[in-house]
Structure formats: C-alpha cells, structure tokens
C-alpha cells in the first residue's frame, strides 16, 4: 500500500477510446472514509473512471491504485473488497428476492445476510417477491442491497439514484448512509443531482471535458468560494488574490464566483456565500477553453 489513508489514487490517469479520450490527465486522491461525489456532464469521463477503478476497463496511460492496489493486475481479493454498481443492475428477473440473496451468499465470502435482510425490511421489500414484479425503484434498492451485503471497503456507484422517484431515491440514499455509519465503507458515486451531493457527500470531484476541474472536501470547497457583486464603475477589478471562476454581467452590475485564499474584506464588492450547487455549476461552465486547446495540441503529438 502506498498510502493507507487513500481508497483511490490516480496520477495522470487516462483512457483513450479509438479517437477520443474518455478521461484525461486525471490526478486525484480520495481519502478513506469519505463519501465522494463525481459530478460532470454526460461524457465527461465519470463512468470511465468508475469502470477503471472497478477493474472493468484498462487504463491507457497513468497510474491507478484502488485500496493501494492496481485493479487490473489480477489482485483477486480486490473484487471482494470493492463493490461496483451501474445502471445495468445485476439481477435475475425470474428470481425471488430471497433467491438473489442466497445467490449472493454463495458467490461472496464476506456476505452479510443480516445486513441485507435488515435493509430490505427497512425498505419494505418482501423476500418472496419476484424481481420482475418489483418497481424500478425497488429493483435499484435490491441491487444496492446486494452490493452492500458484500461489505465492501469501497463502493463505486454509477448514478445509483438516477431515474428513481424522490421517495425511492431518499430511501436508497439513507440505506447507503446507514451502511457508511455502520461499516466505515468509503463511497465514490457519480450523480447529476447536485442537491444529493450537498446532503450526503463530504468530498466532491468535478469532471469537465474529460478533466478534473475541482477535487476537494465539500467543507473546504464551501469555505473557499464566494460570490462578489458590484455596480460597474469604469475600472472595476476583482480584489487581488482571488481567482475568478465564473462571471455574469447585468446592465449595471457584475457578479463573480471566485475562489479565495484568505478571507476577503472588500468595500467595493458585496460578498456572499455561494451554495455548493452554484460552485459546482460555475466549474462546469468554465470548460477552460485555453486548457482544452493546449491539450488537443498534446493529443496530436502523443498519437504517434
């Protein structure tokens, strides 16, 4: 193990599909015990990163360590220590819930049947029900329950709550949080629901254009960003020491979302705290065209 405190570590990790990069120059460290959110538009590389971490895809370049090990170099027991779940739920439609549980028990040495049954009872899902008779939301909950019963140290979840109604989603997230409370599992989940991120995630990673544009503790992210607004008066300059992430102008005023190093004490600007959602959206809108141009140049060179 390089670092016992990180569950996932990547250095300049990249995945190239035929002509395009699915993920590029991705360097990040997710500390143990976190519930980390992976946010970004479709095609930004979220699923690619999760699949590589789960050992389902090979990286093209860079280093990837999951629980201190490389996921694709035949580390047999990593499969038991990592739980992966995507939209294609691994359920046999003709099975009853109880049969799915027994199937899981047979195939997983660390299976915790008590936890699984407790979760299902909490969700009011009868063990006798056939999978095919359950609603989409219930199927998602069963799939997650099966994943949690493996008691993985790291859970990789690709949009676990997508397409669920609000109640089913809430139930699913609570089961997930209970597991985190009981077992100290770490979680990396991709999502489009920024409200969920603020509620359950204490680490946030924003991917845009196949790159990491933000990666840090949510608390730190909240503390280190502000919205500044002011009326135009000729030479209006942002205060020194701040990095402008996004700016919006109106007829007479200007509003900036900025990253700060130190508390700002400004008389010209009105200073407010942005919500996590506003911060994430600002980063998603950046897209940093400059960086992209530079990169496409690199691509030409590296495609030999």
């Amino acid at each position: 193990m390089i670092d016992g405190t990180a569950v996932l570590e990547t250095v300049e990790l990249g995945k190239r599909y035929r002509r395009t990069w699915g993920l590029q120059d991705c360097t990040l460290t997710i500390p143990r015990g976190r519930v980390a959110a992976l946010v970004g538009p479709n095609g930004a590389g979220k699923s690619t990163l999760l699949r590589m971490a789960a050992g389902l895809d090979q990286p093209s370049v860079g280093t990837l360590r999951v629980l201190g090990k490389s996921p694709t170099s035949g580390n047999g027991n990593l499969k038991e220590r990592v739980g992966y779940l995507d939209q294609e739920r691994p359920l046999y439609k003709s099975f009853r819930v109880a049969e799915m549980l027994r199937f899981g028990e047979k195939n997983n040495p660390n299976w915790n049947m008590v936890v699984a049954k407790e979760h299902l009872a909490q969700l009011d899902i009868p063990l006798r029900s056939r999978i095919s008779n359950l609603s989409g939301g219930q199927q998602a909950q069963v799939a997650l329950t099966l994943c949690l019963a493996k008691e993985p140290e790291l859970l990789l979840l690709d949009e676990p709550a997508a397409a669920l109604d609000p109640v089913a989603r809430e139930d699913l997230l609570r089961i997930l949080m209970r597991q985190v409370a009981d077992s100290d599992s770490s979680v990396l989940l991709s999502t489009h629901a920024l409200g969920d991120v603020a509620a359950i995630c204490d680490y946030v990673i924003v991917l845009a254009h196949s790159r990491v544009v933000l990666s840090n503790d949510t608390e730190y992210v909240l503390e280190s960003h502000r919205i500044l607004s002011a009326v135009h008066d000729g030479e209006l300059m942002p205060p020194s020491g701040v990095t402008v992430i996004n700016s919006q102008s109106s007829a007479r005023g200007e509003s900036l979302l900025v990253r700060i190093e130190l508390p700002i004490d400004e008389s010209k600007w009105r200073v407010e705290r942005p919500t996590l959602e506003e911060i994430v959206l600002a980063y998603l809108r950046v897209g940093s065209p400059g960086a992209r141009d530079r990169r496409s140049h690199d691509d030409d060179r590296s495609s030999e």
């Binding site: 519930v35 809430e170 609570r174 949080m177 209970r178 985190v180 409370a181 509620a199 359950i200 995630c201």
Partner: peptide
Amino acid sequence: SVRDVVTQITINPNTVHR
C-alpha cells in the same frame, strides 16, 4: 446517535460526527 440521525434524515454520518 449518529445511526439514528442517518435513519431519520438523508445525511452523511461523517457530518453528524463532525
């Protein structure tokens, strides 16, 4: 308890500890 809070509302247990 942290576990009770997590059952009651959708929140990260680390947040309650914190």
